[in-house]
Computed example of a mutant assay.
Amino acid sequence: MTTAPTLSHGRAWSDTKLLYALEEVVATELDRHLKVAKEWMPHEYVPWSEGRDFDGVMGGEAWAPEQSKVSAIGRTALVVNLLTEDNLPSYHHEIASLFGRDGAWGTWVHRWTAEEGRHGIVMRDYLLTSRAVDPVALERFRMQHMSEGFESDNRHSMLHSVAYVAFQELATRISHRNTGHHSGDPVCDRMLSRIATDENLHMVFYRNLLGKAFELAPDQTMSAVRDVVVDFRMPGHGIPGFERAAAQMAIGGIYNLRIHHDDVLQPVLRFLKVLQIGGLGPEGLRAQEELGLFMGGLDDQARKFDEKREALLARRRARAERDA
């Protein structure tokens, strides 16, 4: 990628100037998004004929794990993914406060919110109708998680936020797709595949925006990407029991260090040629070097994780064979 910074390396862009400078790019990306995004209806992905009353005021049947077609790891991931989507009001507040509610930025923020809201609707309808998860536990988790709200880790600048969502949207897409593959239910897999398609389009929007930011303010953007990659956490990290669930999802092959490195960070960095960008000032060069070193270290960590995971899975298989 060639860079064409409008300001010298010694002068930093303010958030206001960057928002204004990127407005035309946002409008272009919004038009592209609206042309390629296909309308879909959440109710078409829910197996309504499988639904029945729960216990409580309706006097139905209490939930039990054996009622679910979904695998144990699928249930864990579905709860994490849905609770992440549930915090949409907090996400909307964060992004609307940063990007604004007017012009192309505002139009995009509202469109993004509407599309993300659809994901939560279809996932909850599926989970309850198919009895995939305990509805009482799910609701209690939702109340606890949403009562605590959400505050972004990336409050340094709007560039940090753009960089974060470029990676986070791809991470969410990967998590949804792998959850569907490991769910054991073709209906669930089809639903999450549909959601993942939306998330990929969101990633493309922010990735392209990040690419333009590199042209305008290469040093600042490189520093923001470095900060985000090094300190990256999924937005659902505040979910009750997240650490345990994340560990189970890592072992289950839904989201782990190897996936994070190979399928989330590398594709965005490679597409934007972040580690090959030239013409940087001292700040940008330092950030680029630190980013490269971090990615190498992360690859080593992922390799060690892969070895430990395979050893654990081998022990589980051997134990299952003995117990059979």
Rank of each mutant, 00 (worst) to 15 (best):
L138W: 03
D231G: 04
V165Y: 03
A245G: 02
R317G: 13
R194T: 15
L291T: 04
P186F: 12
K69W: 05
E44T: 02
A287L: 03
R140H: 14
K273S: 13
W48C: 00
Q67A: 15
L18S: 10
M146A: 07
T179R: 12
L19W: 05
D306V: 11
R270A: 13
Q168V: 09
D323V: 12
F205Q: 11
V225I: 01
A171Q: 08
P89G: 02
H182E: 12
Y255K: 06
V162P: 08
N154Q: 11
L293A: 13
G180Y: 00
E29G: 01
W63T: 10
V133G: 01
E283H: 06
G56M: 10
I251N: 07
E307Y: 14
A77V: 01
R173K: 14
E215T: 07
N256P: 01
E116S: 03
D153K: 11
L159T: 03
R233P: 03
D53N: 10
F214R: 10
S147W: 09
R52C: 08
I121P: 01
V25K: 14
G51P: 00
Y164G: 09
I73C: 07
E139T: 08
V162E: 05
S71Q: 02
D55N: 11
E289P: 00
M249Q: 09
S8R: 15
S49W: 06
G297R: 09
V264Q: 14
